[in-house]
């Protein structure tokens, strides 16, 4: 109990909070989720093979049309085909999700390892991380996008920076507990250099929780992108994302609910399946949990 009060473990709690019923973990749910996610990813990647229109081609005379045989999901306020945009939009949303997850994990891993191993750097790094965590993620992200101009890269960075502290804390706590382990002490005693120890012994230990954290970051990045677009700080309408398709459609929500419904459905299904897979991955990869279950 004592240990649980340490702030460092709050990220584990967050993970714990995201756990699912056990039967789901081991049963059909993750498989269905996996297939669904696979289907969404394939559909967005293979969009050029089956969509009927160029997602960027505007026709001013065909704005805001209801679904028809030509426009399966109708058209948006620029007269562009919604069906094509929803699938192309998924590509960018997923790219932002995966990009944000990879970048925050990579940066968080490096910073966390440094903080975990070097006591002098630790204090400074953790104070900065505490400060970053105290700034609401959305506000920080809007400010960062407004600062650097809206592009896919800047949106990824803006979503990443508020996520980094959580990853750093996670990595650091694993390192701190692992460095007391006999095998690391032994390696140090045998004269292995620090970087080598880091790579050989600690990286594998941090990978499992990081993969899990990565899936959650990916899901939340896709949502944050949607909110950034909603607040007018998203990427260009020439780069469709689920977020900006919804943001552009929001003024028409009452007249053409489809403008929000379809991208919203795709986005929600996608996040739902990523979260379910994250939960499964967490259970499979977390050795402590396995022990407990046994």
């Amino acid at each position: 109990m004592e240990k649980a009060v340490q702030p460092a473990s709050s990220s584990q709690w967050l993970l714990g909070a995201l756990s699912l019923p056990r039967r789901w973990r081991l049963g059909a749910a993750p498989i269905i989720a996996g297939l669904l996610l696979l289907a969404i990813v394939l559909a967005t990647l293979l969009a050029p093979l089956f969509v009927t229109h160029d997602p960027l081609a505007m026709e001013a005379t065909k704005r805001l049309q209801p679904p028809s045989s030509e426009y399966l999901l109708g058209t948006d306020p620029y007269g562009r085909d919604m069906f094509s945009r929803v699938f192309y939009g998924g590509r960018v949303s997923l790219l932002i999700g995966v990009g944000a997850a990879l970048v925050s994990i990579a940066l968080g891993l490096i910073i966390g390892l440094i903080a975990g191993f070097f006591r002098t750097a630790d204090a400074i790094i953790m104070r900065i991380m505490d400060s970053l965590m105290a700034i609401p993620a959305i506000l920080l992200a809007i400010a960062l996008v407004a600062l650097s101009g809206a592009s896919i890269g800047s949106v990824i960075i803006a979503i990443t920076i508020p996520e980094i502290p959580r990853v750093v804390r996670l990595v650091r706590s694993v390192v701190l507990s692992a460095r007391e382990e006999p095998y690391v002490e032994a390696a140090t005693a045998l004269g292995s250099s620090m970087p080598k120890i880091l790579i050989q012994h600690l990286m594998p230990n941090t990978m499992a929780p990081l993969i899990v954290q990565g899936t959650y970051i990916c899901a939340s990045a896709i949502l944050i992108e949607a909110i950034l677009s909603f607040l007018g700080a998203g990427v260009s309408t020439e780069i469709p994302t689920w977020g900006n398709i919804m943001a552009e459609g929001r003024s028409y929500f009452q007249l053409n609910p489809g403008l929000i419904f379809w991208p919203g459905l795709m986005l929600s299904l996608c996040i739902l399946s990523i979260n379910l897979i994250g939960d499964t991955a967490r259970d499979l990869l977390d050795p402590r949990l396995k022990k407990r279950e046994a």
Partner: peptide, 12 residues
């Protein structure tokens, strides 16, 4: 991207 009356001209 945030002003309804100015969003469309550049795109078109």
């Amino acid at each position: 991207t945030d002003v309804v009356t100015l969003n469309d001209q550049p795109v078109v």
